[in-house]
Design a protein around this nucleic acid. Structure first.
Length: 489
RNA sequence: GGUGGGUUCGUAUAACGGCUAGUACUCAGGAUUUUCAUUCCUGCAAUAGGAGUUCGAUUCUCCUACCCACUACCA
């Protein structure tokens, strides 16, 4: 959800400004490769109606070779491998970065040592002079290690005691002293891949990105990114760090565990992890994509008016980063359902009928489409999801097999049954029957609920007139006789 | 621990430094209905605490508390 919301806000900003929304896959961590994840992202965006202007080819796959539509291809960073090394070396040549030869074990030792004395190890100006890198080693030794070893890295040379002044479109002005920051790894010789920081800046520059809109967890990296743009001498984009999506109860970031625990999806689409673990999706849970987009848009943003229902084009029109909040937004599953309910009501009977037909078929019901459309018109206001339709209206399609015990105890009494039987037999329609009961001053509620119990198996549901209209008088009488046979008095 | 960010009803949020702090969801009550649901009405409920600036602070400043993120050869 958080990822989709970030994509959505990026999309809205791009579309509002008449710009392009580009899809790029940042897969520079070879250890974290998850099969199917890329396809999942693409399909999720498509379901939401967030269509990239650039990044996908005519088959909907990530474009791999540049053409008119996708001039910056490839869009998968693992396929752009070759372009990052020279930028890393450019930084080294300019004195903004250096080669580091410390092994994972050595660094681990440093951290353990620092921790033992109650400190935190930071690889920066304060410590790098005691470590093995191209700043401390002789040039000849550096050359030797560079060619002999394959586990070195390029690290950013974080300046000492400088204040980085930054501006965020959402958070305003922020200042950080570089002495609290570390010499981040920019490029790894081991897999010849950059880390996020280098790849992101290089690609954003190459792809002419104007706005970096991402989650708040990236805020601590912003000084580094500012410094990187400055080191390259590139114009930097504008930055906006979005508030986090928080779990509905308690504290902390929204996680898929919360969804399982509280019964709501955290993923846009059903996701089957390589481990076999299944996470439910909004699509599979019956949410409409525009409802999902709408509720996501309202998580952290507000239009400044009382309007809550927005189509995608209305969102593009109304959206602005100035109205995005600073604090984390707790997700409210009840409100999510409310959104879907509203969208369900806005759907045409025709469309809903098309969605209900296959569900009826699954339940073994072969119903006439025109009849189903009438049913839909009658029940759509009572439902939150299309999947609710069957629970609400099944008795219009088949007779009840059992009767709610409580309701039967309350309404299936001999005097009620006698009146109901007489009214049912003496009249030809529900309207006529109502008049019949009224004329005799019989208790309407008792008689009607007695009939409803026979027709539906419980004392709650649609109006008797509606039920009888769909079921027909003959079937109604048949169900009543059946109830008389099955229910004790 | 360090650095950064955040804090208005339970939740999402509104309020040029100035009405009785508004709206939506949830919940409760009522009206309508043959029942249920819908619909409509009503209600419950908040500026984290403390200083300061000001005629006046939800809004600006500082302190405290609490929450979150980051602190990897992950993104």
């Amino acid at each position: 959800m958080g990822g989709v919301r970030t994509a959505l806000y990026n999309y809205l900003i791009a579309k509002k400004a008449g710009g392009d929304f580009i899809l790029r896959i940042e897969d520079t961590d070879s250890h974290r490769f998850v099969p199917g994840a890329e396809e999942y992202i693409i399909e999720s965006l498509r379901w939401c109606g967030i269509v990239p202007d650039e990044g996908l080819d005519e088959n909907g796959k990530l474009a791999e070779t540049p053409d008119e539509r996708n001039p910056h291809a490839p869009y998968r960073q693992s396929q752009r491998k070759g372009i990052y090394r020279k930028y890393a070396e450019q930084l080294v040549a300019g004195g903004f970065a250096y080669y580091a030869f410390d092994t994972a074990e050595e660094l681990e030792k440093c951290r353990a040592q620092a921790e033992a004395s109650g400190q935190t190890f930071i690889y920066n100006a304060a410590t790098r002079k005691d470590l093995r890198n191209s700043l401390t080693l002789e040039p000849a030794e550096v050359e030797k290690l560079l060619s002999e070893r394959s586990d070195w890295t390029v690290r950013f040379r974080m300046p000492e005691d400088e204040v980085v002044a930054m501006d965020d479109l959402i958070r305003g002005h922020i200042e950080v002293n570089t002495s609290t920051l570390d010499d981040k790894v920019l490029w790894k010789r081991a897999d010849e891949l950059p880390t996020y920081h280098l790849a992101n800046i290089v690609d954003d520059h190459l792809m002419e990105i104007s706005h970096v809109i991402r989650g708040e967890e990236w805020l601590p990296s912003l000084p580094l990114h500012y410094l990187l743009y400055a080191a390259f001498g590139w114009e930097r984009p504008q930055f906006a760090h979005l508030p986090l999506l928080l779990k509905p109860v308690g504290n902390g970031k929204l996680s898929k565990r919360d969804g399982d625990k509280m019964g709501f999806p955290v993923f846009p689409l059903k996701w089957v992890a390589p481990t076999g673990e299944v996470s439910r999706g909004y699509r599979e849970d019956g949410y409409f994509p525009d409802a999902f987009v709408n509720l996501l848009a309202m998580l952290g943003w507000n239009p400044g008016t009382e309007q809550e229902i927005f189509s995608m084009s209305e969102l593009i029109e109304a959206f602005s980063l100035e109205k995005v909040g600073k604090s984390g937004a707790k997700f409210n599953p009840d409100k999510a359902k409310w959104f879907n309910k509203e969208y369900l009501r806005m759907r045409s009977d025709e469309e809903l009928t098309g969605l209900f037909m296959p569900i009826l078929k699954e339940h073994g019901v072969e119903a006439d489409k025109d009849m189903v459309r009438e049913v839909v018109a009658l029940i759509k206001e009572r439902a939150t999801f299309v999947a609710d339709f069957w629970d609400i209206s099944w008795y219009l399609f088949k007779a009840p097999e059992e009767y709610a015990e409580k309701d039967a105890a309350k309404f299936w009494k001999s005097e009620n049954v006698d009146m109901a039987r007489e009214a049912l037999n003496a009249t030809a329609s529900a309207e006529e029957m109502e008049g019949y009961i009224r004329d005799r001053e019989w208790p309407m509620g008792k008689v009607m609920n007695c009939i409803r119990l026979a027709l539906t198996g419980s004392s709650s549901g649609l109006g008797i007139a509606d039920i009888m209209r769909f079921v027909g008088r003959e079937e109604a009488l048949r169900r009543f006789r059946r109830a008389e046979e099955r229910l004790l008095l």
